[in-house]
Design a protein around this nucleic acid. Sequence first.
DNA 1: GTCCTGAGCGCG
DNA 2: AAAGCGCGCTCAGGAC
Length: 556
Amino acid sequence: MHVILAPAPDGSVVLRRLDARGHRIGPDMTAARPELAREAERIEREERPRWVWRRAADWYPGFLAAGVRLERCHDLALCGAALEGSAFAAATHYTSTFAPRSEPTEPGGSLPQLPAPEGQGSLFEDTPDHGPDADKLEYELKAQLAAIAGATQPGRLRLLCAADSAGALVAAEMQAAGIPWDSTTHESLLAEQLGPRPRGLERPALLEEKANELREHLGAPRLNPDSPQELMRALHRAGIEARTTRAWELREFTHPAIQPLLEYKKLARLLAANGWAWLDAWVRDGRFRPEYVVAGVVTGRWASRGGGALQIPKQVRAAARALPGHKLVVADASQLEPRVLAALARDDEMAAAAQDADLYARIAAAGFGGDRAKAKVALLGAIYGATTGESGRLMPQLAKLYPRAVAYVEQAARDGERGLTVTTHLGRSSPRPSERWQRLQQSTTAEEQRRADAAARDRGRFTRNFVVQGTAAEWAECWMAELRLRLRRLAGRGLHGELVYFLHDEVMVHAEEPAAEACADAIREAAAAARRLLFGSAPVEFPVSIAVVDSYDQAK
DNA sequence: GTCCTGAGCGCG
DNA sequence: AAAGCGCGCTCAGGAC
């Protein structure tokens, strides 16, 4: 059963029941704002409906603040975006009335977000106080259910919508919970590496010291090492003919200035990205509460807003610390992308290797003379589209071992080069090429042909990776959705643990100490459930490695 | 002064 | 060791 939540003009909320097919049941109800959470809680307890709203991110945080958790929802904006682009539903001609329409993206990067067309109006449409009424929401829901029912793969698209919608719930719950963050630990890490917190905007003592060391070695007493141009000139004067100031390129030179320069860069990065200013801005009441953007990446991966939540550097992970009497249960899905490829391509040979806990070692034994590093480089090269270097040279050998898997990514690459879209296992399709890209492919002059070919190859690498990265994101989202349900069940038995962090193929549960092992089991069971949901009986394993620790740095 | 882009580097 | 995919964030420096 569905219950639609819609804002009413008088400030109250309309609740409308529909059956599984979208037929209305009974008259609308209304709830005044202050009673909404309690009313929803009662309906949740008695009927376990699927809550339908324009966007979970607008509504659900309010419920959480009132202490009300909901199990299932249908996020019309997220589902609309996925269905509208999906090749599986192309024949249904569904178009979303809600999802923001975005321009086709350039290969390898998205265009900046266009400003809202209707001025500040859109700011308010996006809150639960303003927006489409119950009739519009009902219309949209029916259109989406029809698009799913009429699709070439209805089961997969239904799962994709359920996964994104569950993701929206988890995202709000994790933001409300936050990662337990020990500012004292963080501050002592900073003091240790950078020196005491400076009063003003000057460099911390140890960083300034490193800068002086560098200036001496380069014979440039007034150098500002934060300026790439100044730095480049100083390097050249000292006889270091670097083309860029990237760390990996600088490492190629032997000169006494290189070591202090690399150290300076490392420390300057720590200060700028995760220093005292970061602590002030993002950590409140002992928690780091990032905002997750579900399916915010073209491939369906999540993005985040604020605080760089998906880039917490190893340097400061010790500050993510369980409260007294608690543990962090940190789990990651080992070698997720190659396993996904084996399942996607139905490559039984590679699937056999994916039965093993160490897939790379099995592949190395099968055809790379036991050289694990070689097997790994070859496989990642296939997924990323490497053509040069060692990875490119190893491709023929990989293709001989696993013809189906390699053919699968090659096909995705060729489709992309030709301007076609590609689609993940559950039906998320890649964006169409931009107008500019298509025009470039029509060009006739030799110079433009060269550029067109380069752009085609770029897009081929993008679509090649899209099918694997996107399907891996679907597995991970299902993993979290399944884990979320199991953690709820454990809580009912007095074993408390809550999801507090998610990073592509990694989850973190903050658990009361006696519940930690049960949470670890739930994580493993959820991984198995996600495999069944996506790939049924395909013989591919998705092992997770789990660490029960006091702080994040102790995991792996 | 404000806005935007590229370089660089953090994460998977 | 390497430079193939996807992101967010900060800073410097140029454009306006």
